[in-house]
Design a protein around this nucleic acid. Structure first.
Lengths: 199, 199
DNA sequence: CGAGAAAGTCAACGATCGTTGACTTAACTG
DNA sequence: CAGTTAAGTCAACGATCGTTGACTTTCTCG
C-alpha cells in the first residue's frame, strides 16, 4: 500500500506538526513577528522543509489561518438571546480548542499587513453578514454587522491582545452579559431605525 | 546669540522634521514595519542622524508616540450627552490634526509589541479612567472604562486600520450617533448595576 | 581670518530574514 | 538485495535591519 500504516502517512504527520507550530507562533507573534526559522525550530525540523511543504511563508500562513467561524443558526434561538449567543460563540474562538484559532491568527496579523486585512474582509462578507442577515431588516445587514464586529474585535483586542486589566480579568460570564447586551442593542437599533430614512 | 535667528535653531528644525516623518511612518506601518532607514529617507536625512538625535529606534518611537488625549471635562456637559461626546472626541484623534496622532500610533504597534501594549495600559489608567470616574459609581470605573475602550478601540480598528467597508464608509455623524448610544449604554449600565452585587 | 563646535555624510559591523539547491538518509517496491 | 523515490539536512545566497565610529562639511564666534 502507498498509504497509512496506522492513520497518517509520515509526510502528513510532519505537515500537521508544522501547521500546529505555525498556528501557535502566528497566534502569539503575528505574521511578521514569527519567523520561518522559529517555527521550524519549534517543530523541530529544518526550515527548508517548510518551503517544501508549503511553498513559502505566505503559503504556510494561508494554510494555518483558515477561518470557519461555524456561526450558529441565529434563527433557531429566541431573538432576544442572539446578542449573548454571539458573544459566547466569539469567546470560544479564543478560549476553545485549536479548531477556532483561525480568526485570532488573522486578527493578530491584520493590523500590520494589508493582505491579511483583506482576508478579514472576506470572512466578514461570507460568514458574518449572512449569519445576522436574518435578524435585521434588509439594507441594514452590512452596517449592523459592521458595528457588531467593531465591538467584538475591540473586545478581543483588549482582552486577549492588549490584555487591558479590567477587560482581561472579567469572567467569561460577565463578558457575555455586558457585551451581549451591547450586541443585542445594535441588533434592536437596526430593527428600529429601519425605514426611517427610506423613500 | 546661540539661539534662533527666526524661530527654531537648526538642530531643532531637523529634529522636528525627523519626528514628523517618524509619526507618519509609524502610524502607517507600525513600529516593526517602519524602518529607521525609511524614516530617514523620508526626511530626508542620513539614518545616523536619527541615532544622534534620539539615541535608538525605541527612543524615536517614544518621542513620536506621546499621548495626551485632552479628554474633555465630562462633568461639564449633560450626562446623557457624554457618550456621543466621547465618540466625537475619539474620532478627532484619527481625523484631526497631527497633535492627536499619539494614540493611533500606539494602537497600530501595540498588537505586535508588548512594550507598546504596556504604554496603552498607562494611558488607560492615567487618562481614561480618571475622565469617566465622575460619571459612574465608585468601584465601577475600571470595568466601565474597559468596556468603553473596547468599543472605541474596536471602532478604530475596523474603521481606520482594517478599513472594513461598512464601518469605514459611515459618515462621522452616523458613527457618533450609533456608537455614542452604545457608550452611553455602558455608562448607564454601570450606574444601574452598581450596588446589586455589593455586601 | 582661523579655531572649534555643531551638523551631516559615509561605509561598514553583525544579526536576522525568506529562500534555494545540492547533498544525505530513510523508506518502500520489484 | 538493489534501485527508486520520498523525507530530511546542510550551507549558502542576497537582502534588510539597527547601530556604530570615523570622516567631512557647515556654521559660529573670538
Amino acid at each position: 500500500m502507498t498509504l497509512t500504516p496506522t492513520k497518517l502517512s509520515k509526510s502528513e504527520k510532519t505537515r500537521q506538526a508544522i501547521l500546529e507550530a505555525a498556528q501557535t507562533l502566528f497566534y502569539e507573534k503575528g505574521y511578521d513577528g514569527a519567523s520561518v526559522r522559529q517555527i521550524a525550530e519549534a517543530v523541530p525540523i529544518d526550515p527548508a522543509m517548510i518551503m517544501r511543504y508549503f511553498g513559502s511563508k505566505e503559503g504556510l500562513f494561508s494554510a494555518a489561518a483558515l477561518v470557519d467561524l461555524r456561526l450558529p443558526d441565529l434563527g433557531s434561538i429566541p431573538r432576544d438571546l442572539a446578542g449573548k449567543g454571539l458573544v459566547r460563540h466569539f469567546l470560544m474562538l479564543w478560549e476553545g480548542d485549536r479548531s477556532g484559532i483561525g480568526l485570532p491568527i488573522l486578527l493578530r496579523s491584520a493590523v500590520s499587513n494589508q493582505n491579511v486585512a483583506d482576508k478579514i474582509h472576506e470572512v466578514f462578507e461570507e460568514q458574518v453578514v449572512p449569519a445576522i442577515s436574518g435578524l435585521v431588516p434588509e439594507g441594514e445587514e452590512d452596517s449592523c454587522a459592521g458595528l457588531i464586529v467593531s465591538q467584538l474585535f475591540g473586545l478581543a483586542l483588549c482582552r486577549y491582545i492588549l490584555r487591558l486589566s479590567p477587560v482581561a480579568e472579567m469572567t467569561e460570564q460577565e463578558i457575555v452579559e455586558r457585551i451581549g447586551a451591547v450586541i443585542q442593542f445594535h441588533l434592536d437599533a437596526a430593527r428600529d431605525t429601519a425605514g426611517s430614512n427610506r423613500p
